[in-house]
Amino acid sequence: MIRVTVNGSSHALDVMDSTTLLDLLRDRLGLTGTKECCDLGECGACTILVEGRSVNSCLVLAAEANGQSITTIEGVASDGRLNRLQDAFLEKGAVQCGFCIPGQVMAAEYLLRQNPHPSAADVKEGLCGNLCRCGAYEQIIEAVLAANQTSRESLSPSGGGQGGGR
């Protein structure tokens, strides 16, 4: 039996020792926003935050997360209000097919928490573990830089952009 807190809700789950955290989220908790793709930690589609740190959930065993707190893409927006990054991704046209986007948003969320005012080079470095086959990197980088602008204006975590200011 393991206990994890996912997006603020606690769960007690019986899992096989060989279950990955990615499988736990997707198959047991139905949180399919976290995507499975390369299973090697190369593509970043499964990026989540564990105890506030970004990780590839395909490389973490569910049992390792016992007692820990996890944030997935489903936990980023609150009450249907997009957070500043999600809003900026849409505003800047950074979303195409969408498959990599949850991972990109989570990696960007971690980046902005570590470095609230990144340069374009910082963003490129911070997101280079998240592949986008649509090749929307330019727009994704723009979005992260724009979200940073927004967060400077509004400190509320889910604040920016909804008022339609931009």
């Binding site: 949180l31 399919t32 926003g33 976290t34 995507k35 499975e36 997935t72 893409i73 489903e74 980023v76 927006a77 997009l82 999600q86 991704f89 849409l90 046209g93 979303v95 969408g98 498959f99 986007i101 949850p102 948003v105």
Partner: peptide, 16 residues
């Protein structure tokens, strides 16, 4: 983008 909200929130369901 139409469908963008679902894609940035992880609600978009792909076959998997």
């Amino acid at each position: 983008r139409g469908g963008g909200y679902d894609r940035v929130t992880g609600r978009q369901k792909y076959v998997g």
